[in-house]
């Protein structure tokens, strides 16, 4: 039976290393601990609200791409970490992965809906920024926690 594409198992450790590094960099960005990487880029739209920087549309201009590079590393490593094969990939691990995606979706959107009603104004913008990264983070936390419990729970042969 044809199954969905999963990344090779050998990518798991490099993805974990990149994910931890990029997660640290993502956490540091709000504290303004970041490099400036100003390079010429093509942009469909570049409009900095309340800033002296020039806006441009469908053209080349200079932009700081540090955040974009950190996001690229965070999302690609997070996706590879969650969707790479285990050493022995079987249907039960597939089911654990499927349950983790479902739980991460429910959890993220329940938190988002609660935030909609409890947080207003500027703080809500920061919350939206948190949810931008939250799904991949929750997906990996749910998946590896469930995998750990599954391996622990069924690691010994039943004697009954």
């Amino acid at each position: 039976m044809k199954s969905i594409y999963l990344f090779p198992n050998k990518l798991k450790i490099p993805a974990l290393v990149v994910f931890i590094i990029s997660l640290t960099l993502v956490i540091l960005i709000p504290f303004e601990i970041a490099y400036e990487l100003r390079v010429p880029v093509f942009a469909i739209a570049s409009d900095h609200f309340l800033s002296s920087e020039n806006s441009f549309y469908f053209s080349f201009g200079k932009e700081d791409i540090y955040n974009e590079l950190v996001d690229l590393l965070f999302f690609s490593s997070g996706i590879i970490l969650a969707f790479s094969k285990e050493k022995t990939e079987d249907e039960m691990i597939g089911l654990i992965r499927y349950k983790s995606i479902t739980n991460a979706t429910y959890f993220t959107f329940i938190l988002l809906i609660i935030s909609e009603f409890l947080i207003f104004g500027m703080p809500f913008v920061y919350i939206i920024m948190f949810f931008y990264y939250a799904f991949i983070l929750f997906l990996n936390i749910f998946y590896y926690t469930k995998l750990f419990i599954y391996k622990k729970q069924f690691s010994y042969e039943n004697e009954d």
């Binding site: 039976m1 022995t88 079987d90 249907e91 039960m92 069924f154 690691s155 042969e157």
Partner: peptide, 22 residues
């Protein structure tokens, strides 16, 4: 069968129903 030992254990314990293929 090309599955993990934990999966066989879970099936034996009645915690997991295998696919038709397995």
């Amino acid at each position: 069968l090309g599955v993990t030992r934990q999966t066989i254990n879970a099936i034996e314990a009645g915690k997991y129903a295998p696919s038709v293929e397995l």
